[in-house]
């Protein structure tokens, strides 16, 4: 039934092999983080050398974010920090978070709702690490976090991560299964949960919302804004930026206050809200360009630059 073409990011198959991922996880757990990090160099080099589509996507993003022609070292840095964040998931999910230096910036606004047991929608992106957010929430017992994920997408990684930490599985709200998703979200929000989701990749047959992003027109998913408008919930944004070494900084901001939006105004609301999100995402993507982990063409509607 799906008439719209599949989003670019879905066309990339999961490249990693299950046995390879399990081997790396095993090695990381037995050798420790410092030794395991030595693997990041050959792994990053392998991806840079063997994947023209990753190189292409990296260059097209970095040219916009850096405002200059990217060098191969820029692409390598981006792939390397992606690999570093994936590796750190192993340690963050197995409760080894004392090994990390995690700072929170703007937490007063972002964690306010959560701390008060108030429902909120928390939006993030494939910029840095989402798992450091879990760690910060876990440290504050009253806060309940649920994360929307499509279990079918990246199934193998999800299974491996769920094996490392059963709580990880319990807090996932499955994005599959059609109209029931919103009922699931509503039930979690009624229980005062903060519901987190990625707001930078289009899923399913969503036509998306066109926004200005890093000097071009890109499309963002419309779901988060429909949900916020229908339920009148506040929207908080959060990006867990990897700063190198063992340092992460979580940036929180309240993007939109709680306000129910009448149906007639929702289309305009979604346009304005998606653009507001894109503007902040652009700010953080420029500030931490090597944290950008969308390795596909983010501006498919724009003519190629080269």
């Amino acid at each position: 039934m799906q008439m719209t073409p599949a989003p670019a990011w879905k066309l990339q198959r999961e490249r990693s092999r299950p046995w390879l991922v399990r081997l790396i996880v095993w090695f990381a757990q037995h050798s420790g983080r410092n030794t395991a990090r030595l693997l990041l160099w050959p792994i990053s080099a392998y991806f840079q050398l063997t994947s023209p589509s990753v190189r292409q996507a990296s260059r097209s993003f970095l040219e916009r974010a850096l405002g200059r022609r990217p060098r191969w070292t820029d692409t390598f840095k981006q792939i390397h920090s992606f690999a570093a964040c994936v590796l750190d998931r192993v340690f963050l999910l197995t409760g080894r978070d004392q090994d990390f230096d995690i700072r929170v910036s703007g937490g007063g606004s972002g964690l306010h709702y959560a701390g008060a047991g108030q429902a909120a929608i928390l939006l993030t992106a494939h910029l840095g690490s989402f798992d450091v957010l879990r760690v910060v929430f876990k440290g504050r017992r009253k806060i309940k976090l649920r994360v929307v994920m499509d279990r079918q997408q990246g199934r193998m990684i999800t299974d491996v991560m769920a094996g490392l930490n059963p709580d990880f599985d319990a807090e996932i709200i499955d994005a599959g299964g059609g109209p029931q998703l919103v009922l699931r979200l509503h039930e979690a929000l009624q229980n005062g949960c903060v519901v987190g989701m990625m707001a930078d990749r289009i899923v399913g047959d969503d036509p998306g919302i066109a926004v200005d992003f890093l000097g071009g027109r890109a499309r963002l998913p419309s779901g988060p804004w429909k949900l916020a408008a229908a339920l009148g919930l506040p929207v908080v944004i959060c990006f867990g930026v990897y700063e190198g070494g063992n340092r992460y900084t979580l940036h929180f901001e309240t993007l939109l206050p709680a306000r129910p939006v009448p149906r007639a105004e929702r289309a305009d609301y979604a346009l304005a809200a998606a653009q507001a999100y894109a503007t902040r995402l652009e700010f953080y993507a420029r500030a931490a360009p090597y944290n950008w982990f969308n390795f596909f063409d983010f501006w498919p509607d724009e003519p190629a630059r080269d």
Partner: peptide, 18 residues
């Protein structure tokens, strides 16, 4: 209730919630 407009109501998941 859900699915294409021409054969049914064409509701989406937010409609389902409402």
């Amino acid at each position: 209730l859900f699915g294409a407009h021409d054969v049914g109501w064409g509701l989406d998941s937010i409609d389902a919630l409402e």
